[in-house]
Design a protein around this nucleic acid. Sequence first.
DNA 1: CTGAAAGCGCTAACAC
DNA 2: GTGTTAGCGCTTTCAG
Lengths: 345, 345
Amino acid sequence: MDNPDIVEAPERGRLKMADIARMAGVSISTVSRALAGNPLIPKALRDQIVEIAQTHGYVVNQSARNLRLRKTDTIGVVIPVAHEAGQLISDPFFLEMIGRLADEITRRDYSVLLNKVVVTEAGWLERIIQSHRADGLVLIGQSTQHAALNAVADVYKPMVVWGARLPGQRYCAVGSDNVEGGRLAVAHLVGAGRARIAFLGPVDAPEAAQRFEGYKKGLAEAGIAFDPALAVPTPYTLEEAQRTVAAFLSAGVAFDAVFAFSDVVALAAIGALTEAGRIVPGDVAVVGFDDIVLARHSAPPLTTVRQDLAFGARAMVDLLFRRMAGEDAASTLAPVELVVRGSSV
Amino acid sequence: MDNPDIVEAPERGRLKMADIARMAGVSISTVSRALAGNPLIPKALRDQIVEIAQTHGYVVNQSARNLRLRKTDTIGVVIPVAHEAGQLISDPFFLEMIGRLADEITRRDYSVLLNKVVVTEAGWLERIIQSHRADGLVLIGQSTQHAALNAVADVYKPMVVWGARLPGQRYCAVGSDNVEGGRLAVAHLVGAGRARIAFLGPVDAPEAAQRFEGYKKGLAEAGIAFDPALAVPTPYTLEEAQRTVAAFLSAGVAFDAVFAFSDVVALAAIGALTEAGRIVPGDVAVVGFDDIVLARHSAPPLTTVRQDLAFGARAMVDLLFRRMAGEDAASTLAPVELVVRGSSV
DNA sequence: CTGAAAGCGCTAACAC
DNA sequence: GTGTTAGCGCTTTCAG
């Protein structure tokens, strides 16, 4: 009654290791070992078992494996959104960063779990960590969560954050030299003969604050007094920022240059300026921050402070894996570089 | 010897349900039910248990839950790369699509598992499915895998593919009307007085083939004979495509317009043309396909066949969830629309 | 309403 | 070398 010929695939599509074991006439452990390439099993038998698994389309069930091994071979990439859940993942900088991270993580044969999370609810980070869906975490941007990150960092090591270097920071961060970037931008504009330079950008997040600081530093070095009327808080998205800039324009404050917190805001500024009949860079020179792909192709091409995303992503993933291995890898500052294009000269 | 005060968090950070049960003085089952909001447990007790879990930072271990429930609350988003593993996820269209999909999937309280996969190895799709890491799959682009997808579709239902509608297609696909898009582009160029219209794009993938077909259809409708010398196969990436176009230019074939398979290729064409001293659109009019964010901001702004990604992503995720629910939801064709900007008029 | 017990599918001591 | 066995941490019958 035990015809091996009918001991074939059961319930099509839900093979388990026991099925393969039966077909191969060995125990489950042997299959497990064979599939893991364990040299304890003679090569011939190993190949035979792998062959059987392959022809029947059997693959180890990762849920079971993850539970047993207490690891998932997965990295969580979390995108903190500050406001309501409605906010979309459309920011080009985020998208480029996600692509870069995915490349780096995939290269190490780990999977990427994308987590968009609204950070207004306390315990959001603990929840992600304790769900045990990932072996490590990369956060794109620290948002307003410096304190929350610090609190968690003490007990949860495999975590790396893209963002600003802050005093008293106990979590591992990778980010650009924002202050220097801001300074470079202003120095460039001053060198191009501009003196009434506006700052456009959000002010709540640390990175923005540092770029603003660099802006003021640049002004100071040039001997130009900081004029609060030229510091314009803007939202992050292109459309919203453009409306804000348009409103600022109609307020009639005089200025001949703009340093924007990001390329997206810079593009918004160019849009608003053009719509108002001001010429870029003739009437107003514009410098952005990030060097997203768009910057090179915009009209006019955008002068910007370049952040090397490939470097940043690689650094983050490197540090993360070292932390996952138990090392106490420290924060890194990525260099920035001014890229001069048509929007400022 | 059983002081409840010392029955606190063990081994910091690896709480399990049993720990919470002990602290609450109830059984594991009760905790499980309470945390799941099961109304069998009186509200007061439920709240108390939730409270305890919260203050101790306990969250249900998803690996265990997934195994037990045979589901993961996760959607796999797979990005098929045709060639070596080295290829990067940098294509703006892919990136925008990933963002859109992530938004739609997150909105339904599912997670996104990003899978970059080299489709040259047989069994790649079965491997993803059988690993049971996701409850459903969205493939961005069918690449050259029509046959493989068909084979799998018969036994694996919760899968939706972004791509072309093909004869004999048994898998669920969402995609734009590529033929119509190509036709629209050519009709527009003809209407603008152009007659020597080149097609730039890859030819291996179905979507490209359909756009090429639309191109020829447009020519036929305008009574223009198809000239094979004007059909130029190009790679997908901006840099590579730009080199190809530059080579084509130096071959000296006369033409006054370009219909590019994608906005990226169109941008590459503009780059190559500009470098060669040809004016866009004066000497050569350019039309792209996709309407990525970049298209609106390029110099000159790109005329393009718009694919509604928000619609596409929503449609794919809708269909996928209906399929996951057992419904046999069918393929959908998304409408396309010509967006006229400065690169063609 | 609550608890005991079975089992999701796998890996790795620990025997033999 | 290979098999037996004991969990990984959870959900859910089934009994009470």
